[in-house]
């Protein structure tokens, strides 16, 4: 006969087994949708490019070397790949500016929404999410129509006599920023709104009561309390912005490349899949480092405020 201890142990084993069965869907999803593909990309980045795309199963660190360096055609010496680095920098810069623009526009929007009556809040929320229903490409082309030389902005400015010739907005960094800020704005508004909605507005009243001006209430009370939303929104905007493909290609005209364009080039015309893979992982690393720095800074600021 089994002792009580044995029975308990058997039950324990059964319990552990059952737990594995139950978490199988999650584990499978994580494996096939996240870890698996990433592993393939990582493996590919260490292989040799095939002549017509694809890869040869032969180890080579060459792709990783050429992420940052150029090999001289004649004497094989390495020099920093200025083109790649300037593309990295451009992408990071544009992603940061996009995040700042969406924050500057999204924060007041979220505040406005959170201070409406409960019934109308849903309506505003609905209006904010409507653009999501439209295809990204269509939204980008809509922006293009507005800012092109014959578009509404230039036409109106010229009719009003403010400018005599159309301003070249399209195919500049400004166009990319306008497009990305427009496309990613809801990603900032929604998390900031979610934090703002939870904000106890009696704290705002308490701030006013204790002689804080409107600006001081914003800076010392509202902002610290909705910071989790601001952090979440910034991450949600920064990550897709740094890897944005459609918006920069359509509005930037492909003149000035961003990371995504560079990666696409390797898988297309460049026929260098390992380099494309290495660049993809580089983007991920940049994002991770940026997030680490950002979250740590945001966290330490909170410590200073107490």
């Amino acid at each position: 006969m089994a002792t009580a201890e044995e029975i308990a142990k058997a039950a324990d084993r059964r319990d552990v087994r059952n737990r594995w069965y139950l978490s199988a869907p999650a584990l499978l999803t994580i494996f096939f949708a996240a870890v698996g593909p990433l592993a393939i990309v990582l493996v590919y980045s260490f292989l040799t490019p095939g002549s017509y795309g694809d890869v040869k199963w032969q180890f080579s660190p060459e792709a990783w070397v050429s992420v940052l360096f150029e090999r001289d055609i004649f004497d094989d010496t390495l020099s920093l790949a200025g083109a790649h680095i300037s593309i990295f920098w451009r992408s990071v810069k544009l992603a940061i500016i996009t995040t700042l623009i969406t924050l500057a526009l999204g924060f007041p929007t979220a505040y406005f929404m959170a201070t409406r009556s409960e019934k109308t809040r849903d309506l505003w929320l609905f209006l904010i999410t409507i653009p999501f229903w439209t295809n990204l490409l269509i939204r980008t082309f809509a922006v293009l129509q507005i800012i092109r030389n014959e578009g509404i902005v230039n036409t109106v400015l010229m009719k009003l006599g403010i400018i005599s010739a159309p301003i070249q907005i399209l195919y500049t960094d400004v166009a990319i920023l306008i497009g990305m800020a427009y496309v990613y704005l809801p990603l900032m508004v929604l998390p900031v709104y979610a934090s703002m909605e939870k904000l106890d507005f009696r704290l705002v009243e308490a701030g006013y009561d204790l002689y804080a001006s409107r600006w001081q209430v914003l800076r010392r009370i509202i902002f610290p309390l909705v910071k989790p939303g601001v952090i979440a929104g910034s991450i949600l905007v920064f990550i897709p912005a740094i890897g944005a493909y459609v918006t920069p290609s359509v509005l930037g005209g492909g003149k000035n490349m961003m990371l995504s364009n560079l990666i696409e080039l390797q898988f297309g015309q460049g026929r260098n899949w390992p380099l494309g893979s290495a660049l993809s992982i580089t983007v991920m690393l940049i994002v991770m480092v940026a997030l680490l720095v950002y979250v740590r800074n945001a966290g330490s600021k909170e410590m200073r405020h107490g």
């Binding site: 009696r202 701030g207 006013y208 009561d209 001006s213 009370i221």
Partner: peptide, 19 residues
């Protein structure tokens, strides 16, 4: 309110949670 030399104790206290 920030220009009145009057202060309030709120029903819910409304203490600043981040301080």
């Amino acid at each position: 309110p920030f220009k009145r030399p009057v202060n309030t104790v709120f029903q819910s206290y409304a203490l600043f949670p981040h301080m």
